[in-house]
Write a protein that binds this DNA or RNA. Sequence first.
RNA 1: GGACAGGUGGCAGAGUGGUCGAAUGCAGCGGUCUUGAAAACCGCCGAGGGUGCAAGCUCUCCGUGGGUUCGAAUCCCACCCUGUCCGCCA
Length: 426
Amino acid sequence: MHDIKYIRENPDAFDAALAKRGADAVAQDLLALDEQGRALKTELQNGQARRNEASKAIGKAKGQGDEETAQALMAEVAALKSKMPDLEEQERALSGRLQNALAILPNLPADDVPVGADEEDNVETGRWGEPRHFAFDPKEHSDIGPALGLDFETAAEMSGARFAFLRGPMAKLQRALGQFMLDQQTTVNGYEECAPPLLVRDEAVFGVGQLPKFAEDMFQTTDGRWLIPTAEVSLTNSVRGQILDEAQLPIRLTALTPCFRSEAGSAGRDTKGLIRQHQFEKVELVTIAHPDKSAEEHERMVGAAESILRALELPYRKMLLCAGDMGAAARKTFDLEVWLPGQDSYREISSISNCGEFQGRRMNARFRPEGEEKGTRFVHTLNGSGLAVGRTLVAIVENYQQADGSVTIPPVLIPYMGGIDKLEPM
RNA sequence: GGACAGGUGGCAGAGUGGUCGAAUGCAGCGGUCUUGAAAACCGCCGAGGGUGCAAGCUCUCCGUGGGUUCGAAUCCCACCCUGUCCGCCA
């Protein structure tokens, strides 16, 4: 959500920033609504002021037994009131239109975000690890997986496309990955472990910017709730409507949860394998940060996500997303892309965004600055995957595959696997 | 699902039709005292908006949305949420 005051004072900068995302200029339209609304508001408020004043005088006159004055004032207020409902109605309609127009706009990209239309224009900012040299032709996980308990047919029978039924070694490996990531984020990186609701209301989804524009990407229950597409929704909304003390910041939260996405509009893409599922597990990182510290916190969060890939010894590269490829709520995003030898490419495994105050405004989440400064400020919010468990499972299987179809287990995971160091075909 | 009770400022908690945006306490901020701190004492202390260079003036907000009234935290209706008891249940 945007600050209309900022748009009023910087209409050109606002449009220029939106243009970076490929969005049309809207400042003039918004300001016309704003101006009209304020004129109405002033007129309405003058009427309200007079009404309040007269009403007080009526009370006073009645108290003094001056019925004549009271009657005269009541007649005046009655006349005033004949035109007020209409003004009220107009004002409400106009501010509603302005709010709706603001609610669908994406966040403004940060200054250091590269211009660009899509993923082709993302900028690589770092690389870690050497892709392993294979003495044989590495397979895709969807070819190796079935022998290890990755069962798409059974899932399709009961649920349809984009679901998986994990058995035996694969199920165990997924559990081990989730546990390992969660432990790493809590113990080493200082995030508080959470177990949040997976079903949330409209307001929560609106707060992170997923509603009103992206309803079709989510699943909705029969009673009107939404299945979270990411734990970002639940974790970020934990401060919704609050006024925090500055000393409470930063609040760093993490959760391992299932995520649900309808994947409307991605028909035909990544139809094979575990890459794009309706349901997947993810360890999410969220920070509620002081505005002056969010850029620094962003780097820290990227490091927290990277630490998992390094511990698992999975080669990856770090991409700074261009304006056109970022999610609507983000003002700056880094993607971590893991090396998948079976696909011979880097694939997104984590996306870490600084949303600035965009979500803070939508959620009305603020803090009280310490010291002289009066009033409140909106918090900044950040979120990132640390990591997507399903895709990590894919990365492990493809990177650690052996010629005989087995998969070795990275050393840090072995304790989580009950000592097992290799998955053998069943 | 049924029956009650309740939702008020950062927190606790008064307030049932007329200077109530709201007593009081705690927390917070500023000060006096002190070598320093504590205690004590004094003062300040909700949020958002309109208008104005500013001082200021003014509007809205007591869970949310409607309604009654000249006037609503206070009365009425609907919804949401919390608590307690009963029923059902992993």
